[in-house]
């Protein structure tokens, strides 16, 4: 039982971690708690749905990959969702957050993110309706791992893709000039500016990376669980918990924070009633802020 909960925790933790990367970067570089970030997961998932629906209507692209429930359309849907969600995030940045950042402080940005979250969530509800949707109706057979642990092939894919995304981001942040400039801006925007870094560009990159991570996490959530308009909203606290646990601005912190949140949620059902599971991320947030406010990997400011 404990092994099954652990496996489930790692899988949901991977999704939370992917989604939390952008939130963590936003908190560090844009310097505000973005309550609308989780809605980007929802939009990513539904952008993926749009792509898959169109692809299916056009006859699809062949069958599925081996034991997986999907084929090429889902892979392309991930790319499409990342691009479309990035454009959405850039639009929000341009229309709302950038303007507010110029004239007001970071808490006004938090209010604005409240409003944006309401807009984004309810727009999904208006367009797609409240009923849960699935990408595919293909039934999958669980793979049995040692210790009587059952996982679906799609879940193995999820974990693999998460690792690929994290490695790619690591290389971006340590090898590319843009990535290094992003880390520099996270530490000190003014010093980055006088060094010749165009901080406005860096901020756009933060939105693109955050939105892409959110979109991939959203599609993976849709693939392994289901699509609902409240998909992202229900993840607000887990995402914040992961970002705060890991320490704002830390890539590995966000991912590890996601795993800790996923594991804690899933293992918690062994000691508390399942119905109280959604409170677990909140308790983690309180604990980390009390004992180590800069997070596990964050720099003390």
């Amino acid at each position: 039982m404990i092994l099954q909960h652990t496996a489930d925790g790692i899988l949901s933790g991977a999704i939370i971690g992917l989604g939390a990367i952008g939130l963590s970067f936003t908190m560090k570089i844009l310097r505000f708690a973005n309550f609308s970030h989780s809605e980007l997961l929802t939009w990513g998932a539904y952008f993926g749905l749009i792509f898959i629906s169109v692809a299916t209507a056009m006859g699809g692209f062949g069958g599925t990959f081996g034991p997986l429930s999907f084929g090429w359309p889902l892979i392309l849907a991930l790319v499409f969702a990342a691009v479309a969600t990035s454009l959405l995030a850039l639009l929000l940045h341009h229309l709302i957050f950038e303007r507010l950042a110029k004239v007001t402080g970071h808490m006004t940005m938090v209010f604005a993110s409240f409003g944006v979250a309401l807009l984004l969530r309810n727009a999904v509800l208006l367009i797609f309706g409240a009923d849960p949707i699935y990408y595919s109706n293909t039934l999958q057979f669980a793979v049995k791992l040692p210790g009587n642990v059952r996982v679906l092939p799609d879940q193995v894919f999820l974990l693999g893709l998460t690792i690929v995304v994290v490695i790619a981001l690591h290389l971006f942040l340590t090898r590319s000039r843009t990535g290094i400039a992003m880390r520099a801006t996270a530490e000190s925007p003014d010093l980055a500016r006088v060094s010749g870094v165009n901080v406005n560009n860096v901020v756009r990159w933060v939105w693109v990376i955050g939105a892409s991570g959110a979109a991939v996490a959203g599609v993976l959530y849709g693939l392994t669980v289901q699509l609902r308009p409240e998909l992202g909203f229900a993840l607000i606290l887990p995402l914040f918990a992961a970002a705060i646990l890991g320490g704002a601005g830390s890539l590995y912190g966000a991912v590890l924070g996601g795993l800790i949140v996923g594991l804690s949620e899933n293992l918690s059902v062994m000691i508390i009633p399942t119905t109280y599971k959604p409170a677990v991320p909140f308790l983690l947030i309180l604990a980390i802020l009390y004992f180590r406010p800069q997070g596990l990997f964050g720099e003390k400011s």
């Binding site: 938090v110 606290l237 914040f240 909140f282 947030i285 309180l286």
Partner: peptide, 16 residues
């Protein structure tokens, strides 16, 4: 807590 952490924490309280 700092402002935005206070926001997140109080949001969590409402959820709880």
């Amino acid at each position: 807590l700092r402002d935005e952490y206070l926001a997140v924490a109080t949001f969590g309280i409402a959820v709880s």
